[in-house]
Nucleic acid binder design. Structure first.
Lengths: 204, 204
DNA sequence: ATCATTTTTAAACACTTGTTTAAATTTGTT
DNA sequence: AACAAATTTAAACAAGTGTTTAAAAATGAT
């Protein structure tokens, strides 16, 4: 018996679809209930409030987002390979869920996001040992001596922005969804080349 | 007599402050009126609707955003210098108006944004002649042969994302506003180095 | 089958929202 | 000063919002 057919699960999945596309303020409990095919009172029955439902959804989205990232970081592979794989995985995951980076980023700028949802992201990634590896690689000279903040920001900028700014980029370049997806495949190669070339200069 | 003291101007400026921080759905006409110190009915009197007011504000923000960008592109300078100056100007402008890239990007993803607000951005930038310059530079080998889409996307990713993802990055790295600003100064140097190194490889 | 518990339904509630209305006030024109 | 036009004010309106309530229906336990 699949758990995804329970009322609670239906509401949660519907909420995930609606919240990730429209954000917390951009949709109503009634819209979510309609999306789930349920009565609006059930939002409060199962989740106590719209806010609580949002927190549950946000937590779930973050977990999914980080899960396969952590898998890549735990691999026994050279650091440069791991970074390449990380970028590949980001593009792959987000291509399937293009609304997620924008959702996470904008809701993280909202002060109403409950503190309990501000995951201890760094701790979870640190557990994989990736930061130690980066540190060592900088000592041996394999990796450019650049602070962790900038290293992560460079990677995230080039992996997430292309999806976050889809509307704007389509307007700028007058392209439709299909063409956009094609361009991103090519774009990924360029940014891999650029970032790897910069972060691991010794290979040049 | 400064035009900025008229009722219309006061409402517009207040709306700019509120819309850029909270987006269209995240605030109400009453909130904007309160911010302006005016009665809410005046929103409709002067701008006919909340939607129209938003369109006016969006148009203004886009114009400001692009104005100095175009100034840089029109300069009589070598292309590489122009690109450097462009990046400098982006960081400078957005440091003063950190809410703007996130605002533009997220509202551009909203289907409700009026088509009249989808500026013919490309045309305006093309007028500066920058794209011809880039094309020529690719022919002469000065600039990497990379399609325009990816070139613009690389530049925008590394200039805008650091501001858009402020909340997330602060959470990841446990840093406050002041420290974040400091890190961005350093980060700018890294991304200039990376992007210029990639886009203009002949200089290596 | 009976009863207890849980879930669902639909309406109600109090508040918020964008907009409209009508009257009061201010400004402009002669 | 008189009148017209523009602006401002405050209330009203209709619809939407998150939440609560009470009753009906479904499910679980014996």
């Amino acid at each position: 018996m699949s758990k995804d057919t329970t009322t609670e699960a239906k509401i949660k999945e519907a909420a995930k679809r609606v919240f990730t596309n429209k954000g917390f303020s951009g949709c109503s409990s009634r819209e979510i209930a309609k999306e789930a095919g349920m009565n609006v009172a059930l939002v409060n029955y199962y989740f106590r409030s719209k806010e609580q439902l949002f927190n549950v959804v946000f937590h779930t989205v973050m977990d999914d987002f980080m899960l396969s990232m952590k898998d890549v970081f735990r691999m026994k592979q050279p650091l440069e390979t791991k970074v390449r794989l990380f970028i590949e995985r980001e593009y792959e995951f987000i291509t399937k869920h293009p609304e997620i980076p924008g959702f996470i980023v904008s809701e993280m700028n909202r002060c109403e996001v409950g503190d309990s949802n501000k995951q201890f992201i760094m701790d979870e990634i640190a557990e994989t040992g990736i930061f130690e590896e980066m540190h060592q690689a900088q000592i041996t000279g394999e990796m450019r001596k650049i602070d962790l903040f900038s290293a992560t920001l460079i990677l995230m900028s080039n992996c997430h922005f292309p999806f976050i700014a889809k509307g704007l980029m389509q307007e700028i370049h007058h392209i439709d969804d299909e063409k956009y997806a094609q361009q991103l495949v090519l774009h990924k190669q360029y940014v891999i080349e650029m970032m790897i070339g910069y972060l691991f200069p010794a290979k040049k």
